[in-house]
């Protein structure tokens, strides 16, 4: 039997397979944050972004395009007819995402830069694959494209192996999850040690400079808290920098999902769920929300009501405040 899935799934899976990025971003775009840092391409510890933070502003744009297009409409059918064209030329983010704000692009691009600076500050030495880095394929796993993923990951591993690294540090818990639990089933001798940014910071948290800030509330990411069992570490890190942590009623392994995983197929519902989570977090008494996952960051930002004064940041962005310029 053959099945026809919603177009957005076709677009995303094909982009990953053909372009190594769910939104067909170019390697040079994904790696632009690293300009001037002169990171080596080989080393013991590989800094892995997977392009996830970098693509966040574009996801919203894609979602907006979908939301405004009634998939039953004539325009939509015409677009479906144009699929062949898209197949030949690849998805064109330049055109489709022309509306993305420069400030959003800059913000999400700089998350990787800030993460690198924080780790440098803690005296970690690491390498980075730059323009060659490929997306982990986590969405192929998430969306059920496992046969495609099995082929795709071999290419990702080739790039990783070129670095000569033994350990991979992932900024996104989604990448860490698939490297840890899925890759070993699909790739022969995938024996890399998989760490997260949070792990590495936690180990050397005593070296972090103090940060002046009002209290914060942690939004535990589902993947981090439940799959990777990382939640106390976030609190320890914040304690080390001298910041008070308020707790949401549903936290740690009982955390409420941000709604992000269904954003591409059910954007409005995802938005409602994100908004509810923002309110749940604010009930803690803090309006400064920290998370440690690109999709949570984006979904919570999206769930923030107009005029809401709450601040949503990635832990990386928050810790960068303590880094000497």
């Amino acid at each position: 039997m053959e099945t026809k899935m919603p177009m957005v799934l076709d677009v995303i899976s094909e982009n990953i397979i053909k372009h190594g990025s769910p939104l067909a971003l170019k390697g040079s775009e994904v790696a632009s944050w690293a300009k001037g840092l002169n990171l080596p391409v080989k080393g013991e510890l590989l800094f892995y972004t997977g392009g996830e933070y970098q693509m966040l502003p574009f996801i919203d744009s894609l979602v907006k395009t979908i939301t405004h297009l009634d998939q039953g409409s004539k325009v939509f059918s015409m677009m479906m007819g144009a699929r062949n064209l898209l197949n030949k030329t690849g998805f064109s983010p330049e055109k489709m995402y022309a509306s993305v704000l420069a400030k959003d692009k800059d913000r999400y691009n700089s998350v990787c830069f800030k993460a690198a600076k924080v780790l440098k500050e803690l005296e970690y030495e690491f390498c980075y694959s730059g323009n060659d880095e490929l997306y982990s394929g986590a969405l192929l796993y998430e969306l059920g494209y496992l046969e495609d993923m099995e082929k795709y990951v071999q290419r990702v591993v080739e790039v990783i192996k070129k670095s000569g690294a033994k350990t991979i540090v992932c900024l996104s818990p989604h990448a860490a999850e698939v490297f840890k639990f899925i890759y070993p089933k699909m790739v022969k001798d995938f024996d890399f040690e998989i760490r997260t940014f949070v792990d590495l910071v936690w180990e050397r948290r005593e070296k972090l400079a103090k940060i002046q800030s009002k209290s914060v509330v942690i939004h535990d990411s589902c993947r981090l808290a439940r799959e990777l069992s990382i939640h106390q570490e976030l609190r320890d890190i914040l304690e080390s920098v001298g910041v008070e942590v308020k707790e949401a009623a549903m936290n740690r392994e009982w955390t409420s999902c941000c709604g992000g995983p269904i954003k591409i197929l059910f954007p409005e519902l995802s938005h409602v769920i994100g908004g509810r989570r923002v309110n749940e977090l604010k009930e803690s008494g803090s309006e400064h929300i920290l998370t440690s996952c690109p999709y949570c960051l984006s979904a919570l930002e999206g769930g923030l009501a107009k005029g809401d004064s709450a601040v949503i940041e990635d832990l990386i962005e928050f810790l960068y405040r303590g880094v000497k310029a």
């Binding site: 039997m1 053959e2 026809k4 919603p6 998939q71 409005e268």
Partner: peptide, 18 residues
């Protein structure tokens, strides 16, 4: 045989949104 899920997804999304 081809099963086209696209309409089903659209209708389902409408009911969830409502």
């Amino acid at each position: 045989m081809t099963v086209d899920f696209r309409k089903d997804f659209v209708n389902y999304e409408k009911s969830l949104n409502a």
